[in-house]
Design a protein around this nucleic acid. Structure first.
Lengths: 200, 200
DNA sequence: CGTGTTGCTGTACGGTCGTACATGTACGAC
DNA sequence: GTCGTACATGTACGACCGTACAGCAACACG
């Protein structure tokens, strides 16, 4: 008979703890994510959580970091869809639909944003996440329009999260067309609406 | 000699408690706002907080509600600045600068947004706040552009809050011009770029 | 077969929390 | 005056929290 003690599997347990922490952050928010809740969710004893992570903020930060890395890779993969530069607006509308549909991801994102305001360590992480789309768009349409389009999308997604209603795709398409459809007028050179993969 | 007991002033104490709660929500977030912290900040004994508000969420909600009402009135007052409809873009850029400068208000806003996601009661409140600008702009430029401009501004402000950097005013002006400077093309009738005060 | 190292776990400590409540005090009605 | 009611307050209870830590089990290595 198994004496109740699990087999050795440091990597697996560590990951189980991180997964449980991420789920809880999404479901109840960072504030209510406790050692005990994580341990129960992960199916490990309380002591395991403090064995693998020195402190609770460290644990949560590690979970957020891992999730952020995953999402950034996701976004970069999606970039393949808009790599040819044609129908950029359509691709962005489609991506926004995806983002709004993935409520978990949205919650995680804004949980991270708010935490970043008061946590020096998370600020850099949030900044990376925030700038991912802009970084992606800049080589395609120039810095100015990329910043504007990124801000618009963030705003649209924020509104969708709060109100629970999906954004109007026609409105979104019209707005994005207005933002990227013409060269920026003042601040940036951007004539080169090029094809090709975004760098990095 | 005063026996340590304060004079009777129900309205005053209630308001002091609400003010203290609001300050704490801004400074440390909803999650760390406790009865005891509020009482200390307001200069009242612990028991007073539960005397005036049945439960802590009720207390915080009341504070947020009051603040939201105040801010909405503020925004409506600012509307006087753009009432004539000329240089609408300039006025919006100016208002955004104000919003970004008022870090407390931004924090409060996003604290409310995130809480609204998990709190049915706050959702309506957050929706009102969120739609204030859109409601203001709709009679001036039509529903579609108003929604787009509102989303853009929310996104810009969100990014400013998270990164701590003010948005580029030139970028903002260019983007807003693109969004409001022409009639919407598909979804909305909006030819009437009229002058006049917004309704309500 | 020992034996040391690493993984693993249960329990305990000090602290903060929300809330209930008994007690006390001011003040208007009469 | 006295009396009822609304305001005011100090204290206590049970729950949950983060973290520390002593002890136990598995495995690598000799």
């Amino acid at each position: 008979m198994n004496s109740g003690r699990r087999a050795r599997d440091p990597q697996g347990r560590r990951q189980a703890i991180l997964d449980a922490a991420l789920e809880l952050v999404i479901e109840v928010g960072i504030a209510r994510t406790s050692h005990r809740a994580i341990a129960e969710r992960a199916g490990v004893p309380l002591g395991s959580t403090t064995y693998y992570f020195p402190t609770l903020p460290d644990l949560v930060a590690a979970a957020l970091e891992q999730a952020a890395e995953r999402v950034r890779r996701e976004i970069r993969d999606l970039a393949g869809k808009i790599g040819d530069g044609r129908d950029l607006v359509g691709a962005l509308v489609w991506m926004t639909g995806l983002a709004v549909g993935d409520r978990k991801r949205m919650l995680l994102e804004y949980e991270l944003y708010l935490a970043a305001v008061r946590n020096e360590e998370l600020r850099e992480l949030a900044g990376l996440w925030l700038r991912e789309i802009r970084t992606l768009l800049t080589p395609l349409i120039g810095a100015g329009p990329a910043a504007a389009a990124g801000a618009l999308l963030d705003g649209v997604i924020l509104q969708a999260m709060v109100t629970g209603a999906a954004p109007d795709p026609d409105m979104l398409e019209t707005a994005l067309t207005a933002l990227v459809g013409r060269p920026a007028e003042k601040t940036t050179r951007s004539g080169d609406v090029v094809t090709g993969m975004p760098e990095m």
